[in-house]
Amino acid sequence: MAIEKSTWTTKAGLAQMLKGGVIMDVIDVEQAKIAEDAGAVAVMALERVPADIRKQGGVARMSDPDLIVRIKESVTIPVMAKARIGHFVEAQILESLGIDYIDESEVLTPADNEFHIDKHRYKIPFVNGCKNLGEALRRITEGAAMLRTKGEAGTGDVAVAVFHARTVLGEIRRLQSMSEDELYSAAKNLQAPYELVKQVAQAGRLPVVNFAAGGIATPADAALMMQIGVDGVFVGSGIFKSGNPSVRAKAIVQATTHYQDAHIIAEVSKNIGEAMVGINISSLPQEQLLANRGW
């Protein structure tokens, strides 16, 4: 019997198993355990959450492999970690650690201002950020097996997450209404391969799972993104920068499952402590926006 490892189906398939779930940023073993206990489907292991990266400035890089390994050993759920955009050696290192997914992330300082990582070369699957459909399809072409709309990480302001998710989903709906000859022009404008554009137009959705990220801070935010039409949510600073991380994490997990049930969302939103303070995105200067990284 032939056994084939690290195929496209196994890579994209793990993301399919994460659907309807919450992936939480954690900076140590203790937080990883809190996340798992709260019902996270995976954890993102990193040294600093985006809110701190934003505050402290400087170059943000891949986390210490020792920290990532300790977090991996402390939980039974999948572990993800971030590599800088284009930093294919950070990706090689993360793959060697035997974690489950790499996030080629705009939250870290990009290492290459022109090229993303050629993700087909890896056995480990990658998740990438996107602001629009063209960016989403270019990442899939490079080998991303999962996407997340970028939002604006570390702000606690959901507005950009909403904008990016609506943009991607709206562009898919427009493709569905196009005739075949219009799709050629659409592919040109999206700067994405025609075959992939055609596939999305026919299926009415992306060929990989798409989560929302960047600014989700409350159970209502998570349910909002789910109702808009994403497959699940990443919560970064929103949990461990809040007043009561454990309670908030559990509430966000429940709101993500029962995203269509306002009674349940109301119930889980009660008495969950202070949300992260957050930054109103419209007060941020352009050069501080992380979502603009990636091409």
């Binding site: 056994i3 039974t76 035997g98 974690i99 480990i124």
Partner: peptide, 16 residues
């Protein structure tokens, strides 16, 4: 037995 084959890198396709 959970994750009996290892991490994601050990996920596989096969004929059963």
């Amino acid at each position: 037995r959970r994750n009996a084959f290892g991490s994601q890198l050990d996920s596989f396709e096969a004929d059963v």
